[in-house]
Design a protein around this nucleic acid. Structure first.
Length: 249
DNA sequence: AACCTTGGCAACCGCCTCCGG
DNA sequence: TCCGGAGGCGGTTGCCAAGGT
């Protein structure tokens, strides 16, 4: 019965039971898991504990200035969509981001006039400029790439896992973006690319976008001196494509 | 030393959406 | 089409430690 369910802080023993169970059997049904794991907790409680505290790669401790900046900017764009904001911060849970916002950043945001909805015009004006005035020029390739991510790539624990499709399809998809940017030319700054994705892709795909951005920023696709992206043609069709999408076998 | 206030954070609650029967 | 269960999400609560009086 639900009245038998334990509430409140989790003990070390309970944590260990949950970790052991998930490591052994994986996550298959949160509502049934407590019973099989020997826990007197609700499935929701188990899920929350796992997502916010126990799962691998979860990041605890102080937020860096970069992370805070991402939260501030994201909140100005997305409002209280904590899970969407958290997806831009690998290892951070939506609960962490939400708590940090309320305890640290809310006041700062209002001081900087960054609260969502209050300064929409200012926010738009301060966004990085993209290199074309014609938004439709990039709408189509953006949608196609987005569709590609949706249908061909899955993500687990913030890592790419290829679904082993043919590289022909991948090449075709990325041709569009390199075509748009005129082969060999710079598409702009890293912020331009961020803005590009933010503006043109559904918010549901934020995790995809973030993974994409992680790979862009971690690769040698932009020049350190001015933070400008290098050639899309080289990056997508050679470095990025081969390093990320090639199947080991 | 005792009490009060405040801030940080873990966890709960209720609502919503999705999906399968 | 409807309904109920499961999971996801944002708002809120409650505990605890630290600092102030």
């Amino acid at each position: 019965m639900s009245t038998d369910l334990k509430k409140g802080a989790w003990s070390v023993e309970e944590d260990q039971k949950l970790i052991t169970y998930i490591n052994r059997y994986g996550i298959w049904n949160w509502s049934q898991m407590p019973r099989f794991a020997g826990l007197s907790r609700s499935g929701k409680s188990c899920r929350l504990r796992w997502m916010n505290y126990l799962r691998p790669n979860v990041k605890k401790g102080n937020f860096s200035e970069e992370e805070e900046e991402i939260i501030l900017v994201s909140h100005s764009q997305l409002g209280n969509r904590w899970s969407a904001i958290a997806s831009r911060l690998p290892g951070r849970s939506d609960n962490d981001v939400k708590n940090h916002w309320h305890s640290h950043l809310k006041k700062r945001a209002s001081e900087q006039n960054l609260v969502c909805g209050t300064t929409k015009e200012n926010t738009v004006n301060s966004l990085p400029r993209f290199e074309t005035e014609n938004i439709e020029d990039i709408q189509q390739p953006a949608n196609q790439i987005n569709d590609f991510f949706e249908s061909h790539v899955s993500f687990e624990d913030h890592n790419f896992t290829s679904s082993c499709t043919t590289t022909t399809t991948i090449d075709q998809q990325f041709e569009h973006i390199s075509d748009y940017h005129n082969t060999g030319s710079s598409p702009g700054t890293i912020d331009d690319l961020r803005y590009f994705w933010d503006q043109l892709c559904p918010l549901e795909n934020l995790e995809h976008i973030n993974n994409h951005m992680d790979h862009v920023t971690s690769a040698h696709a932009f020049e350190d001196s001015n933070n400008y992206l290098g050639s899309y043609d080289n990056f997508y069709n050679n470095d990025y494509n081969s390093s990320i999408f090639d199947c080991p076998n």
